[in-house]
Design a protein around this nucleic acid. Structure first.
Lengths: 404, 404
DNA sequence: TCACTTTGTGCCGCCAGTGAACAAAATGCG
DNA sequence: CGCATTTTGTTCACTGGCGGCACAAAGTGA
């Protein structure tokens, strides 16, 4: 999420000390005990002990040295590590087409408090973000918890390093709205501590799934998700969100998946975007598409409850084939080791997992030699948790500096 | 090029000391003087001095403290840094459809010696690689230089971590041939010092261009190149080759660029692979395609010498449009900050740079807001130099350990 | 109760790199 | 020509993270 490397780099660049990596291991649940932490970090027990003690002193984690009930293995049981209850939180916010949601998220992706909300005038980003931050500030005041920063998820590509929303069409916002600047200003104005970040919702969902959900442990994680309209993609490489040189990577909506397909506003035809979204599905299944906001739910329900209907099934299989073609194209380019699907794509996967996997394997060049696992999203509110990850990142990189 | 991270990591993982980064800066020409080295590394003058002295003691670089003639700036002139002449070299090898080439490559991508060669029986990888290594060993003996390792470039996708060539069809090798194993065994058998590596030729060309050619300084470098048949792609992220989870990323040949196009062996139609290769161009220009080995040269010559011919021009513009569509698709997914073209694609770019840039800008979603620079390859024998980069990498990562 | 295994802790030493003081090599000015 | 100024090279004491070791602690199994 940063971008260019400046000519002069500071000495602090490669994060000193094992504090950051250690916190990340506890944060992502990969270090349940101090012994595991020792081996994961690749340091001595002495160092791991010091690091764990320091993180505890910072109020971030809890080191439980009490005797454990059922042990199982030999030797002295290791101290257990966990995220501290009542520790600092990040303020997470998400804006979508029919409202917003604010939440407080602790380490480990734990949602501590949440507040949904609606807005009356959607078209003005400053006003919407003002209300969102207001709701978040209220949550913070009520909880009395320390805040490490704020993160916002928006359903639009976010250009780096400006932080402008390029296509927030679902929100009726003007293209190029400086969302990061607005959000950041509102956060500061509300007296909320810490830096403020903004990112695309699918990107942030992918980040959250990688750290706390179905993407755990993947080195090259590809996520693809449909919202009410349109398709979004995200790539998490070695634990870091890959957003390209200017934040616009993984705009996967315009892969050609159907040469004879319907025309798309991009100038091509048969794009993934218009071929695999809820509206396409409902149309193909000859159902009357309801209001814009409920397209996703309507399509999902149809898939789950009426898959016996030949018409629904045929439409689903058509979409699965198209989606598979798109995923295969992405596999050929990105060679991920795991794929996670969200939104309608998730429903399509669950409707007929074998069919989708077969198409991807068949149409990706080396699919047969070890095909890619394709999974569903598992995390509730993953964009929200991902927004919090943004705010937590500085702490994960250097706890001492971030909490100073 | 490595792949998975093992569960237990050693303490040596994050390369200690600034030796490696410093050597890389000199290697890539980004640190011409000690003063620049100091600021690029972000360390004190004392440290930079010690590091430079140590690299000189290792016989890798030269520190020139002699007074300089024309200075220009104020203050004491800084010591100049350069790659040492007569220092160690890497053995680089490249196999292509009509023979092979071996070379010795020093730091800075300097080709010290080179030896082209032909083989009689192409179909047996063991025999071909035997001859290649033999030629390289001869070069090494003649030069008397120290060898840090060997690298091989093959015109095929190379699967990681096995190191097998998945589609070496231009070489008439069996698919799945264990090229890394064979090459490595031959290198050891010839008594050549250091580890042996193997990679795809376009990947290695991209790496070389990033370090010593047109890709210098790019953070997200995309390379696309055509050989005699087929299209290859490569991505260099933050100075490291991105080969995906199993070495198969950037298999860009099967992006759909022409819905009504000719069928492709992948099962689709209108793939970049069959729409923008030399054969497609010659056919479209209604020229008689000559023998397989000379397709690339024939097409390139035609573009350069007969671009006035309406028939040639029409064919070229068609290919440019298709290529532009493919590049735009890649831009939407990868969001690179620079694109470098090789082979026929380079010739197409140079035939009409504006047309190609316009197509890419028009069909990539955010092309208008700061379009991507598209450049030609500039480095002679870039695959060869890239193969050497593979062998140099351990030294660049940790000079002390690699030369111990 | 006694080996045995595994983990936690205190202490010492190493070493890369910092920071500051000083020396050196160039330019420009009187 | 000499001198102030600027920029760089060099020396040296110091620091901070971490390895290595020895020993203590807390379990399991016979």
């Amino acid at each position: 999420m940063n971008g260019k490397a400046t000519t002069t780099r500071t000495k602090l660049e490669r994060g000193r000390s094992a504090l950051g990596p250690a916190l990340e291991l506890v944060h992502t649940g990969r270090a349940p005990t101090r012994a595991v932490l020792t081996s994961e970090l690749g340091v001595t027990r002495a160092t791991a002990g010091a690091v764990a003690a320091e993180l505890e002193a910072l109020g971030l984690i809890r080191v439980d040295s009490s005797p454990r009930s059922a042990a199982g293995s030999q030797g002295r049981p290791s101290h257990r590590l966990s995220v501290r209850d009542g520790g600092p939180v990040a303020l997470a916010a998400q804006v979508h087409s029919d409202g917003f949601r604010a939440a407080l998220v602790g380490l480990g992706g734990r949602i501590v408090a949440t507040a949904p909300g609606c807005v009356t005038v959607m078209a003005d980003p400053a006003q919407v973000l003002g209300e969102v931050v207001e709701a978040g500030a209220l949550l913070l005041r009520e909880s009395g918890l320390r805040c490490v920063g704020a993160g916002l998820a928006v359903p639009s590509a976010v250009a780096e390093p400006e932080g402008t929303a390029l296509n927030p069409m679902h929100l009726a916002w003007p293209a190029g709205a400086p969302v990061r600047e607005i959000f950041s200003a509102r956060v500061r104005a509300a007296g909320i501590a810490g830096p403020a970040f903004t990112g695309n919702d699918v990107n942030l969902a992918a980040l959250a799934e990688h750290r706390h959900g179905a993407g755990r442990g993947a080195q090259h994680l590809l996520c693809v998700a449909t919202g009410h309209r349109g398709v979004g993609g995200a790539l998490v490489l070695d634990g870091r969100l890959h957003t390209g040189s200017s934040g616009l990577a993984l705009e996967v909506g315009h892969l050609t998946v159907n040469p004879e397909g319907r025309p798309c506003h991009c100038g091509g035809r048969g794009c993934l975007d218009v071929e695999t979204d809820p509206l396409a599905f409902l149309t193909s299944a000859r159902r009357d598409p309801g209001p814009e906001e409920s397209l996703l739910k309507q399509a999902g329900d149809l898939l789950r409850t009426e898959y016996d209907d030949p018409c629904v099934r045929a439409a689903a299989e058509e979409l699965i084939d198209r989606l598979g073609l798109g995923l295969a194209g992405l596999v050929n380019i990105l060679n991920p080791d795991r794929i996670i699907l969200g939104g309608l794509h998730r429903d399509l996967l669950e409707a007929d997992p074998e069919r989708l996997r077969a198409v991807v394997a068949d149409r990706s060049l080396w699919g047969r030699s070890g095909s890619v696992p394709i999974l569903s999203c598992t995390l509730a509110h993953n964009s929200l948790v991902g927004a919090a990850e943004l705010a937590w990142q500085p702490v994960l990189d250097d706890p001492l500096a971030a909490l100073a």
